[in-house]
Amino acid sequence: MTSRACVLHGVRDLRLETQPEQPTGPGDVKIAILAGGICGSDLHYFDHGGFGPVRVREPIAMGHEAAGRVVETGNDVETVQTGDLVAINPSQPCGHCLYCKAGQEMHCLEMRFMGSAYRLPHEQGLFRERVVVPARQVHRFNRTVPVRAAACAEPLAVCLHARAQASDLKGKRVLVTGAGPIGALCVAVARDAGAGEIVATDLQAVPLSIARQMGADKTVNLAEEQDGLDAYKADKGQFDVVFECSAAASAIRDALTCLRPRGTLVAVGVAGDTPMPLNLIVSKEIAFRGTHRFHAEFADAVEAINSGSIDVTPIISPSFPIEMARDAFEQAGDRAHTMKVHILFNGFSGP
């Protein structure tokens, strides 16, 4: 049997191709993908052929955020059954390197991350009508969870891991700089953790309106209010924690200026070499923390969506069938009007 896949061959060279289906072996699960979310890294591959040293060097099926229904299981799989709605954890750490043994699987030396061009051959992604993965990578949802919400488990896991890099947020004042999908979800996880006040910034109105739906108490459009954060810079800063989701030098400076002494900045956004005011980090004794992917947080994200403790649906934008995958990528790149665009597979058109 065959299935169709969204395959990138080079810059903006996205093709819909037919591929043979993989067989389902012991311990495996075959999934009919229904919805796949387009991530910022997918857009970098599509628009620029990669980011930093990571380049597309051979055809690669895109995507690492996806949900679908189980259509076949290996004879020893007991965790899911045919018909279950599931999300797929794209992270495949080796389990035996020094970082895996230390419980730092996101830093695995032999990491295989689906939809990534880091290694050669590339790790094929999830924008395929049928995929076969080990059962340990599959997480089941309740029957009431919308498919596209289930497909948001991966970006939510990213934000839960980012939250884990900060101190206890209960009652704290939190700033989120950059209100795209990851920024909006950082707002949601901060609200879920009991933050006392959450302020989100961006240069576009639509992301800021979504951030308010996700739990922001106040939003600041810095394209219209260049002094919108000035009040938070008083007395060496007013925020306890910043989730910096833009990777823009100006936003990092604002974040450090608005942080109180001994506050924490969690750098979520990714870019190349970026200038920053080291003097503020040193003089205010700022804890500057990076955050990279996730591990156990994927299961936590699924549980949060299952329980309804975090509602991801506000970030979901209009979706496109697989035949219109290029249009989906074009729309996903329009940050002024969209947040999380999904590609739909196998004729799915529901919520």
Rank of each mutant, 00 (worst) to 15 (best):
Q81Y: 00
M1F: 10
G68E: 05
Q213V: 01
L43M: 15
D28N: 13
R253E: 15
F141C: 11
L43W: 14
K170W: 14
T313V: 08
R293G: 00
S91F: 04
C97P: 03
P26V: 09
D42C: 12
L259Y: 04
P90H: 10
A164E: 04
G125N: 06
P181H: 06
D334S: 04
E78L: 08
G125T: 02
T338V: 13
Q137G: 00
K101E: 04
L280Y: 08
G171Q: 07
G36E: 04
R130E: 15
S91M: 13
L126P: 02
L156E: 05
A61P: 00
A66V: 01
V241I: 15
A32P: 10
N142W: 11
L208K: 14
C245H: 03
S3P: 00
G49S: 04
I305G: 02
R212W: 08
G50V: 05
F51P: 08
V189G: 06
D202R: 14
G215L: 13
A234P: 00
I88C: 09
A205M: 08
A223M: 10
M214V: 08
T2R: 13
L222V: 13
P314G: 07
V147W: 10
G49R: 04
I210R: 15
G103W: 04
R136D: 08
C159R: 05
H48G: 00
V131K: 08
N221Q: 07
R136N: 01
A234R: 15
K218R: 15
A195G: 05
V29F: 10
A166K: 04
L259A: 05
C94P: 02
S317M: 07
P277E: 03
V241D: 06
G52P: 05
G103D: 04
G49K: 05
V189D: 06
P20G: 04
A193M: 10
V199G: 05
A188W: 12
D334Q: 12
